[in-house]
Simulated scan of single mutants.
Amino acid sequence: MKKRQNVTIKGTKDGLVLHLDDACSYQELKRELDDKLSQTLRAQEEGRIIAVKVEIGNRYLTEDQREELKTLIRQKKNLVVDDIESNVITKEEAKALRAETEVVTVSRIIRSGQVLKVPGDLLIIGDVNPGGEVIAGGNIFIMGTLRGLAHAGCYGNHDAVIAASQLRASQLRISDCLNRGPDHITSNEKHEMECAYINENHQIIIDRLQALIHLRPNLTRLEGGH
């Protein structure tokens, strides 16, 4: 009976991809990885630095185990670990991911001196008064008038947007881009909902809300992708 291979090594134009079986024991995996890498490197060109991507499937590794695998691979002189990919995340990571992707809905007025910050998207049913601040890791949607400060994509998301029934902000921020008001705001006689986004020149642009349909099609996140 042919012995099951716990380590599969595949060469690509970018380097090596190591696929590590997720069913065997961790110690068994380490031994076979050490042996396979030693055999593979004998046939490799001396002195050439090789990037390594590690795929561990449904196996969960502690930080110590990740460092052990990285050290084992780096000991082969000319190997550099680019990434270790796993299909498994911890409960803490899952909670953080959920927080970053959920929409927090608040139904109240944000008054002067008040600061509201959420990790994901923010929907406010009410106004943001001058001196009030709303900050989100994702998008900001305001069913009311924005007269205070709004900062979307505060963790570096350049695709985040700010939308409001009336955009009269004292200051707009998206990621690391800044747009001060109110001199940049044009008259909105039709009282259409407005949005702010970063354009290709890394500048914050204010437009009609309908523009987002084409500029940010991924804003629609219904089940089934429709």
Rank of each mutant, 00 (worst) to 15 (best):
R147K: 15
N201A: 11
A196I: 10
L215A: 04
Q210K: 07
N201D: 14
S165H: 13
I142W: 04
A211C: 04
G138A: 11
E192L: 15
Q171I: 06
I142T: 03
G137Q: 07
P182D: 12
A164V: 05
R221N: 09
G137R: 09
R216P: 05
N179V: 02
Q171P: 00
A150H: 03
E194Q: 15
Q203T: 09
L222Q: 09
A211R: 08
N139F: 01
A152T: 08
N188S: 06
P217C: 08
R221C: 07
D183P: 00
I205V: 15
L212E: 05
G156D: 10
I204C: 08
G153A: 10
A169L: 03
M143A: 12
I198F: 05
L209P: 00
S165K: 15
N199Y: 10
E194I: 01
G144Y: 08
Y197D: 02
Q203M: 06
K190E: 14
I142Y: 03
I140K: 10
D159N: 13
G137Y: 06
G148I: 01
D176Q: 09
L209T: 01
R180A: 08
P182N: 13
L212M: 15
Q166M: 11
L167I: 09
M143N: 14
I198N: 09
I174W: 02
G137P: 07
I198R: 08
M143W: 08
G153M: 08
L212G: 06
I198W: 05
I142H: 04
R168N: 10
C177Q: 15
R221L: 05
V161G: 03
M143T: 07
G181P: 02
N139Q: 07
H151Q: 13
G144S: 10
L209R: 00
L209H: 01
M193G: 02
A169R: 00
Q166P: 02
I213H: 06
L212V: 10
E194N: 01
Q203G: 01
A152N: 11
A163I: 15
G148R: 06
R173P: 02
E200Y: 09
N157G: 01
I206P: 01
L178E: 14
L215Q: 11
H158N: 10
V161W: 01
T186Y: 03
I142S: 05
I213C: 04
Q210P: 01
G144M: 12
C154W: 03
